[in-house]
Amino acid sequence: MTAVTHLLRLDVNGSTVDVAAPAHWTLLEVLRYRLALTGSKQGCDKGDCGACTVLFDGKARLACITLAADAVGHRVTTIEGLVTPAGLDVLQRTFDEAGALQCGFCQPGMIVAARACLDRKPDATRAEIKEALASNLCRCTGYTKIFEAVEQAVRAGKAAHVGGPASLLPSGDATPAPASGAAR
């Protein structure tokens, strides 16, 4: 059948945007190819990898298996939306600091999923972090430095909470693991 095009009023990264899109287009297609928000990535085509993860009213959602028309009425936040005039999201900084970014392709989705996790649980433990990121595949890192990056953000959040601005240790001062390498 021929495509039906809707005029969609979307709330993306705090802005209201009107966009004409075929009814069968996914949110990911609209974000990437209509709104030029190319930070959200396409990896698997069908919800298996998490590279397209965005926030939907603050909760993680797979944009590649969400119809754009179904996003109407929800607050959509993409990786680009985590950057504010005040600067980068603490997770964007800690992912960079911790060396969690290799090819970087899974990371917009990963960072967004981590943001949803910390919004729900600012003091998430390593086990909770692992569980929260279990819909996001990374092929480069073995996840090790991703976990460390989220843990750094948790620590930064705690530091901010007890007073004073969130201070981020430069990478050179990141807590080293014991030389024995045991039980990190």
Binding site: T38, T78, E80, L82, L88, Q92, D96, L101, Q107, S171
Partner: peptide, 21 residues
């Protein structure tokens, strides 16, 4: 030294342009 990557921030913010971008 334990330095950041030259392209790390761009990847963390979604600015980095991959071919399909």
């Amino acid at each position: 030294k334990r330095l950041r990557k030259v392209d790390g921030a761009g990847k963390a913010t979604g600015e980095a342009l991959y071919t399909d971008d």
